[in-house]
Nucleic acid binder design. Structure first.
Length: 602
RNA sequence: GGGGGCGUAGUUCAGCUGGUUAGAACGCCGGGCUGUCAAUCCGGAGGUCGCGAGUUCGAGCCUCGUCGCUCCCGCCA
């Protein structure tokens, strides 16, 4: 018997075409499926390039091989030697790239056997996420997942190539670093050599990239792993990957230009999509008003309008009291939806009020455009003067058959609940073109946001974000009015990146720290090294970080971030494959000077 | 931290108002079959109904606890 184990593979399975007919080949791969007809056996051999049908026919193969072929099962690893042949008339399989040919085997060898799989390799079968994660090596073996992981590799290459060609320098930053208590919770790593001390895993390379600017490495980038020990949600993982970028001597526009070209390049190279640049810029306030979100999905219209003024003098108690308390009335006009959305869906307890309630709205007022001429009509229309209803309809451009949804509440609640309703309606009424790519820069974010729990101002982005120069005088008098030189890049309702121009002068930095209640002593303790660095000739600088996993998700049209991360964790932060996190020995704990407060139950 | 959904054969699921021996499909095992490609035909094996308590004459089904997966709110500078 020839030793195929050591024989060199001549080509990949998925590469064979009609032009290869007549060639002698050696293939190596997995038995994707086997069809045993007794007198003839067909195998689909799979590797990461695809499938190829192999025919085992006693006419072409020695009896001893045919005998042992009876033992072949799915997922056995085999080597096959044979001749590429055209498939007989009518036997072409159009579903396979290699469907016009087959390999007539002259011999084969089983390189390894396989237990029956805990689930099937076929793409038409669903399997539980739990099993996919537990047997991740099998999940990753599926052609569908291999396509994702290979595309992810291509994305890394496109990003690196583009950034290197555009003068960016790739620099590593530490994984073991210093804990910075604000922001997300840090993952901690106990130090063996410094008793009682801890490293933290970086939430992002933020401070290091600023330090690199101080050090003169204008145009830094890194494909960086970031760690945040917070509760999970869909599309959030404890460790995730960012394309981290920082530049010196720039305005936001100087950054947008190369970043737009980077994003364009990514979507064109990976997806073959057409991307128009420059992207539109939308001020934060406008995004919140029109879309009720700082990451608007611009694939459909349905803009929210403020109609507070129309109802300013009305007697309807809910509206009146909301306005008197400084609240707003906002409305969404849904074209031709009066019949598509039932009264059951609109009634208290129905789907629509429930969506709104999730985001804090106490209720939903609604009207359907009815009658001749059409006017807003509903169970509450009797509370309003005819002129009020008419001006509502004209302000919204509402026509017969339209549905009007109204939320009266604090500006934030009205915006968010209508924003979420807008998304719900977009999906429910099928207004979203799944192939569209709608990018936008969201700009002019507020520098601070009010922390209701602790009754103080917090940084909206992070404390190193530069205020707009003209707003600096407001830092101490009217912090809520200070705009930041911060920006997010959004795509189809997802934030795919965000960043800012940083503060490069220690006096401005101190004023900002003061505004968010960080005293000089505390600032020095937490970020002393950064403040010190800023005092040694720090250039003006700024940057951005893109969420690589989210971009991958959109590129691959996946709903779950776990599908585009090779080895993701579950919502409880467990790795079902390795069993991490796990207990450690007493000796390991002693080494790092840690004593558990409670014995873990066996 | 709060709320929702799910957990039944190796896998994906069904299982009525709490009532006889918990079913199906795929997979697996044995056998047949020379043109299949989700091969097919005949036969067979396979169950701690996640785990633990409780209610009941009787629990896959009801209650409580617990573990796991997942989604939402909070959280994520």
């Amino acid at each position: 018997m020839p030793q195929l184990t050591e024989a060199k593979r001549s080509c990949y399975c998925g590469e064979l075409r009609k032009s290869d007919i007549g060639k002698e080949v050696i293939l190596k791969g997995w038995v994707h499926s086997h069809r045993n007809h007794g007198g003839i056996i067909f195998l689909d051999i799979r590797d990461r390039t695809g499938l190829c049908q192999v025919e085992l026919d006693p006419k072409n193969i020695a009896a001893e091989y045919f005998e042992s072929a009876q033992k072949l099962r799915d997922e056995f690893v085999i080597a096959v030697k044979g001749k590429v042949a055209a498939r007989p008339e009518g036997m072409v399989n159009p579903k396979l790239a290699t469907g016009e040919i087959e390999v007539k085997a002259s011999c084969f060898e089983i390189l390894n056997t396989s237990q029956p799989l805990p689930y099937t390799m076929d793409s038409y079968a669903n399997m539980s996420e739990e099993n996919r994660l537990r047997y991740r090596y099998l999940d990753l073996r599926r052609p569908e997942m291999q396509e994702i992981i290979i595309t992810r590799s291509k994305l890394y290459r496109v990003v690196r190539t583009f950034l290197h060609e555009n003068g960016f320098i790739e620099v590593d930053t530490p994984i073991l670093t210093k804990s910075t208590p604000e922001g997300a919770r840090d993952f901690l790593v106990p130090s063996r050599m410094s008793e009682g001390m801890f490293y933290a895993l970086p939430q992002s390379p933020q401070l290091f990239k600023q330090i690199l600017m101080v050090a003169g490495y204008d145009r830094y980038f890194q494909i960086a792993r970031c760690f945040r020990d917070e509760d999970f949600r869909a599309n959030r993982q404890p460790e995730f990957t960012q394309i981290d970028i920082e530049m010196s001597f720039i305005t936001p526009e100087d950054l947008f230009e190369p970043m737009e070209r980077l994003i364009k390049k990514i979507f064109e190279e990976i997806k073959g999509a057409k991307v128009e640049i420059p992207f539109r810029r939308i001020p934060y306030a406008e995004a919140m008003l029109k879309y009720g979100s700082d990451k608007p999905d611009l694939r459909f219209g349905l803009e929210i309008k403020d109609v507070t003024d129309i109802f300013r003098s009305c007697d309807f108690r809910v509206f009146k009291e909301t306005i008197e308390a400084g609240g707003v009335i906002r409305a969404l006009c849904v074209p031709a939806a009066a019949e598509k959305i039932s009264n059951t869906q609109l009634k208290p307890g129905g789907e629509i009020p429930r969506v709104a309630a999730t985001y804090g709205a106490k209720g939903i007022a609604w009207f359907k455009m009815e009658g001749e001429p059409a006017l807003p009509n509903s169970n509450i229309s009797k509370f309003f003067a005819a002129e009020t209803l008419a001006s509502l309809a004209s302000a919204l451009g509402a026509a017969a058959g339209d549905l009007i949804l109204i939320v009266a509440d604090k500006p934030k609640v009205a915006a968010e609940s209508l924003g979420q309703l807008r998304l719900w309606l977009g999906r429910a009424l099928n207004l979203i073109n799944p192939d569209a790519l709608e990018f936008a820069w969201i700009v002019d974010f507020p520098l601070f946001e009010w922390n209701e729990n602790e009754r103080r101002w917090d940084s909206a982005h992070h404390p190193f974000t530069s205020p707009m120069p003209e707003d600096i005088p407001l830092l101490e008098t009217a912090p809520e009015k200070v705009r930041a030189r911060a920006y997010d890049l959004t795509l189809n309702g997802e934030e795919i990146g965000g960043g800012s121009i940083r503060i490069h002068r220690s006096d401005v930095q101190e004023t900002v720290f003061k505004a968010i209640g960080i005293g000089e002593k505390e600032a020095r303790h937490r970020f002393g090294f950064l403040l010190e660095a800023l005092s040694y000739g720090a250039p003006p600088h700024g940057g951005i970080a893109f969420g690589l996993d989210r971009i991958m998700m959109i590129l691959m049209k996946r709903d779950s971030i776990r599908d585009v991360i090779p080895f993701p964790k579950t919502q409880a932060g467990l790795c079902l494959m390795t069993g991490a996190p796990s207990d450690v020995t007493d000796e390991q704990l002693r080494d790092v000077h840690i004593q558990l407060r409670r014995e873990i139950k066996e």
